[in-house]
């Protein structure tokens, strides 16, 4: 999948190489976007944010990488998947599909856990942990598990669609 000059060509037309500026900006911005996404996910319970926004933001980071570096670069370098995708669920698509499946399972499992404890499906609880260094008190919400499930579904599903439609 290489054009012989040590740079993955992907399916892009070599005459339409992206500029150095775009590549450099992407390289700088993508980690920032990802960190922001995680921050949005974690703080969602108390401040603007949440699983859905964080998920969409993460996908934006991946999509940006795909536009600037190509889908293949995204798969091989960033995600380390080298299996050529011949079947439907092989290669990176399998990872993406697995992500949204896991997210859905996580969200539902959290609900079932509440049932096992004798509460209605999807009941949430909050635990306050005292005496933590620096923070003094930390609020642990079970809703974060559910939000993490939402995050994984959004990331997995959107990336699956992006990958499949993008390959067309």
């Amino acid at each position: 999948m290489s054009d012989g000059r040590g740079r993955p060509a992907g399916r892009r037309d070599p005459r339409r190489e992206t500029t150095v500026i775009a590549r450099l900006v992407t390289r700088t911005v993508v980690p920032l976007i990802l960190v922001t996404a995680v921050a949005l996910l974690v703080r969602g319970h108390n401040l603007p944010g949440g699983g859905f926004i964080a998920g969409v933001l993460t996908v934006t980071a991946f999509a940006l990488t795909a536009i600037i570096y190509g889908l293949d670069e995204l798969e091989e370098t960033l995600l380390g998947v080298t299996v050529p995708g011949r079947g439907v669920l092989s290669g990176v698509t399998e990872t993406f599909a697995g992500t949204f499946a896991a997210g859905l399972a996580l969200a539902a499992a959290g609900g079932v856990a509440a049932m096992l404890a004798g509460y209605p499906f999807l009941s949430q609880a909050v635990v306050f942990v005292e005496g933590v260094p620096l923070y003094h008190e930390i609020e642990l919400a079970s809703a974060l598990v559910f939000d993490l499930g939402v995050y994984l579904v959004v990331v997995g599903a959107l990336l699956t669609i992006l990958k499949v439609v993008g390959r067309e």
Binding site: L47, G111, Y119, Q124, V126, F128, A143
Partner: peptide, 22 residues
Amino acid sequence: PVLLDAAGGGNLVNVILVDFRA
């Protein structure tokens, strides 16, 4: 130390999404 009756979140929009209307 444990909240069961209240959602205990500062962001009401998100609390509705993940708790009340989960």
